[in-house]
């Protein structure tokens, strides 16, 4: 019934959806959304990892600096941060590189340095870094302290302890949370529409303001968001399997393997008649 209503109600405007789904301007917008997400996540998690290691370090200054960063960037709404970076030019007309209070080597107009695209990517990454820092820190805390003790007792160098022993085990709890964040950010990029950047959500608004097919265009955007998050979910599953090595006795099957197994069991059951139920209840 619901499916029927979805297909037959002309208000859904499926032909328009079809016409715009692969429209060049929409495809460009999808690509831009992907780029923004990738930049936000990669830069966000790089900075977030640095912040997490600072926070976990035994140097009080580093730990409190990282705490301050997380506090600030988690407290201010993303949309406000974005507008702030976007309007940085209003705050400082020129940005100079050189000796503090000394001669400048060169200076640039902040409008050139921080255009809308940079402002958007920067804003997303800096905001994301605060959340990433907590996720990475949580991952490190989830690793049995005995692991670090064993590594220390073996004389393994400190950096190697972190990246070879702790991080791979921390990844097991980092990956699901990070998957959440990435998928959140795919959709979160839609807030940069306030900066009039041609990402997916902004682009469909431009189009429906022109052709008046609001529902159809929102459907186009929804379908693309679905496609992007589906791809990411599949990737996440495989990354989790990769880091699950050694932690379970056997790796869980991929969804494809599971589907294949169910099909073969069914087929076998059909050929042989009902399965033997172990003879328990009779």
């Amino acid at each position: 019934m619901a499916v029927n209503a979805l297909v037959t109600n002309p208000a859904w405007d499926w032909p328009v959806v079809g016409a715009y789904l692969f429209h060049p301007s929409v495809l460009h917008a999808v690509l831009f959304t992907v780029e923004l997400t990738a930049l936000g996540i990669v830069l966000g998690f790089l900075l977030g990892t640095v912040l997490a290691l600072m926070r976990l370090s035994r140097v009080p200054l580093l730990a409190s600096a990282a705490w301050g960063y997380v506090w600030l960037f988690r407290s201010v709404p993303l949309i406000l941060q974005l507008l702030f970076w976007y309007n940085l030019a209003a705050l400082y007309k020129q940005i100079s590189f050189g000796v503090p209070f000394g001669p400048a080597f060169f200076s640039v107009d902040s409008m050139d340095l921080i255009g809308p695209v940079t402002a958007a990517a920067l804003g997303l990454a800096l905001h994301q870094a605060a959340y990433a820092a907590e996720i990475v820190r949580g991952g490190f805390l989830s690793v049995d302290p005995g692991q670090l003790e064993a590594a220390a007792a073996l004389g393994i160098p400190r950096a190697r302890q972190i990246f070879r022993i702790q991080l791979p085990q921390a990844m097991r709890s980092i990956v699901p949370a990070a998957g959440n964040e990435i998928i959140g950010l795919v959709k979160g990029t839609s807030v940069v529409y306030i900066m009039a950047l041609p990402e997916l959500f902004y682009q469909v608004q431009v189009i429906y303001n022109r052709n008046g097919r609001v529902i159809a265009m929102l459907l186009v955007a929804a379908i693309w968001y679905l496609v992007l998050t589906t791809v990411l979910s599949v990737v996440q599953h495989h990354v989790e399997r990769r880091f699950g090595r050694g932690l379970a006795r056997t790796l869980p099957p991929t969804p494809l393997e599971r589907a294949r197994r169910i099909l073969t069991v069914r087929r076998a059951a059909r050929r042989q008649g009902p399965a033997w139920d172990g003879g328990g209840r009779r």
Binding site: D144, G146, E149, A150, Q169, F243, L247
Partner: peptide, 10 residues
């Protein structure tokens, strides 16, 4: 160690 503390991912 009493609880071995082998590296489980290696």
């Amino acid at each position: 160690f009493q609880n071995f503390h082998l590296f489980p991912h290696l």
